[in-house]
Nucleic acid binder design. Structure first.
Length: 599
RNA sequence: GCGUCCGUAGCUCAAUUGGAUAGAGCCUCGGUCUUCGGAACCGAUGGUUGGGGGUUCGAGUCCCUCCGGACGCACCA
């Protein structure tokens, strides 16, 4: 099913070509800025008129004369300096609603991408031996949403969890574990999960202790460095211990992914260590191509256009003066792997905006080396940056003692607060159901609050705001869903068979303003998904869903459904059914937020 | 110092290649009730889009400048 905006763009664009002879002109159809202008407006005529130096209103008249939109719209109106205003016909809206209803695939009548791509989405990327903290929240859930949306549109999405599983700190950690946890080490030889003896929280603690000893005790520091060497050279004992540390960390990450309803699995993990063997090749190839040069003992590429604070060329360092590699090197190796092995047509990196410069340089170096091409075709490299999560004080969210807030603790508190609300509002529900609702609402609130903010700006984290019943929040959306579901439950007791009425739909009757408003919004779900995908912006989805819930509420207040006259009832049941399905799809399929039948 | 991003209602935020009279929510005030779930709905108040200049039919959006803020800027990621 083609969306109205696409059809309008095509037809108006074609009419513009016929009138002007200009091939490159676009109709630029957008949702109307004000309902009184209709449902859509075409803004393209004015831009073309400017180019051609003609009167925009006259040009608009000529274009409209060439148009035949009678199957979709009321006659177009020209307004202001040359807008073409378009209003959907109720019959068209009704026909679209019937089509969505007839779609048994669960896609709500939304067609897939005609030319699917292979896309790599790089997100989450926590560090081994550290608990996930609030700094990992945004990458994890925004990356998940982007992946879900692109996948729904028909692309082949390869998720990549670029785990921080390598570095010199593991020498210290292994040294410490080996000394203080001989029983764990012994079991380590049997490759049992390390988590049985040692949690990631323990590891963090150990790491701090190890760091102190490293700084104070030269002998200890030497041994730690020896472990690094042993690890890098593949020493079985070192590798075994390292592997078990990684596995224990991943188990804890997976628990959080599951709780967050994020579609990441162990299969998506490809950590930094996976590229170890490729790093010398990256440096060697760049040297051979004369792109990398030595500077102050380090191997660097100097992409044009980047300067240090002294105004000198800024290096992209790929090998330190002591011979070690950096994340720049690893990122280049990963990029080559994704292009050459995973056959990516597009690579999307979801990281915080502080890394903008790094990715600009990475992409530039990849281009200089020709590594962003496969079979002569350019691979699109996209950095999707996001802002920070702030505390009430406007500074990056930390605990009182200045530590990062653990993601697990954050989620636990959200669920706990949601549980208190459920307890207050609906004390008679069975305890098990209360717990389920609290989990859906609490975790959903944290995610929804993040998604509904502009990705690029910082936002202030506030439990009370994200759990509010009013406004653009998860509980409001979930409540709207529960209300529709409540009608469905009630239908049975009133002897109304929804499946029967929806199967034998007669002509839809969208005469009430709230019916038509809701219907028009329902048929525009695809637009919201497409704009969210185009700009990698989940807040377009939340904005759409919020507006949907508002329109439903208005309809719900205005129009009785089950007690409607028999002639009106099927239409209203359909509006309810499609509202529920759309909210369900948006929240649960695209945002990964659970809906509940009752709350 | 240089660079990037940002500054929108009292507060938190929207505004989709530059589009019409800058929109929501919270707060405040007023209204709706014989609950298909009131965790709701309807309405009102509230703005020189940080200041100034420019580009044009049209600027929150683009350019210049000043003020204020966040982040980044050679061997951490």
């Amino acid at each position: 099913m083609k969306s109205a905006i696409d059809i309008l763009n095509e037809r108006i664009g074609a009419a513009m070509v016929r009138v002007t002879g200009c091939q490159s002109c676009a109709a630029i159809v957008r949702p109307a800025t004000d309902p009184k202008f209709g449902d859509y407006q075409a803004n393209g005529v004015m831009a073309v008129a400017k180019q051609l130096k003609t009167n925009p209103r006259k040009l608009a008249e000529q274009v409209v004369a060439q148009l035949d939109l009678g199957d979709i719209c009321e006659p177009p109106e020209i307004a202001g300096p040359g807008f073409i205003n378009l209003r959907l016909k109720p019959q068209y809206v009704a026909a679209q609603l019937r089509q969505i209803n007839a779609d048994s695939t669960g896609r709500l009548g939304i067609a897939g991408e005609p030319e699917p791509q292979t896309l790599v989405v790089d997100f989450s990327s926590p560090n081994v031996a550290k608990q996930m903290h609030v700094g990992h929240l945004r990458s994890t859930i925004i990356g998940d949403c982007i992946s879900r949306v692109l996948e729904f549109l028909g692309h082949r999405v390869i998720r990549q969890n670029h785990l921080g599983d390598w570095g010199t700190q593991f020498g210290m950690l292994i040294r410490y574990v080996q000394e203080h946890f001989s029983d764990v080490v012994a079991s380590g030889m049997r490759e049992e999960p390390l988590s049985k003896g040692l949690s990631v929280a323990d590891m963090e603690d150990l790491y701090r202790k190890a760091k102190h000893r490293y700084d104070d005790d030269p002998q200890y520091a030497k041994e730690a460095r020896d472990w690094v060497v042993r690890l890098q050279s593949g020493d079985p004992e070192a590798v075994s211990l390292w592997r078990r540390i990684v596995r224990a960390s991943l188990e804890e990450c997976q628990a959080i992914y599951d709780q967050l309803n994020v579609q990441l699995t162990q299969n998506d993990v490809r950590g930094e260590s996976a590229y170890n063997n490729d790093l010398p090749g990256v440096v060697g190839d760049l040297k051979r191509a004369s792109l990398a040069t030595e500077s102050d003992g380090a191997v660097c590429v100097f992409p044009p256009g980047f300067k240090t604070k002294e105004g000198e060329p800024l290096p992209f360092i790929i090998q330190k003066s002591d011979g070690a590699y950096l994340y720049a090197t690893t990122d280049l190796a990963a990029l080559r792997y994704r292009v050459d092995v995973l056959k990516a047509d597009r690579i999307v990196y979801v990281t915080d905006s502080r890394q903008i410069l790094h990715f600009q340089m990475l992409f530039k170096v990849a281009e200089m080396a020709g590594w962003d091409r496969r079979d002569g075709r350019k691979v699109e490299l996209v950095h999707v940056p996001f802002g920070s999560v702030l505390g009430e004080d406007g500074k990056p969210l930390k605990t009182r003692s200045g530590e990062n807030v653990k993601l697990q603790e954050l989620l636990d508190e959200a669920v706990e607060r949601a549980r208190a609300v459920v307890e207050e509002k609906n004390p008679d529900l069975p305890p098990q159901q209360k717990a389920k609702i609290a989990a859906a609402v609490g975790v959903g609130a944290v995610k929804y609050a993040d998604y509904s903010n502009n990705r690029t700006s910082d936002y202030v984290f506030s439990f009370s705001k994200m759990l509010a019943m009013d406004g653009n929040t998860a509980p409001y959306m979930q409540y709207a869903y529960a209300r529709v579901k409540s009608i469905e439950r009630k239908a049975e007791s009133k002897g109304v068979s929804i499946p029967d009425e929806l199967r034998d739909l007669g002509n839809l009757d969208l005469t009430e303003p709230t019916e038509l408003d809701l219907g028009k919004h329902l048929v525009r779900y695809a637009e919201a998904i497409e704009s969210a995908a185009a700009d990698y912006r989940p807040n377009y989805l939340t904005a759409y869903l919020y507006e949907l819930a508002q329109r439903f509420s208005a309809f719900y207040t205005e129009c009785p459904v089950l007690d409607a006259p028999p002639a009106k009832r099927p239409t209203r049941l359909l509006l309810c059914d499609l509202t529920a399905k759309t909210i369900q799809h948006g929240l649960s399929q695209l945002l990964g937020i659970q809906v509940v039948e009752q709350m």
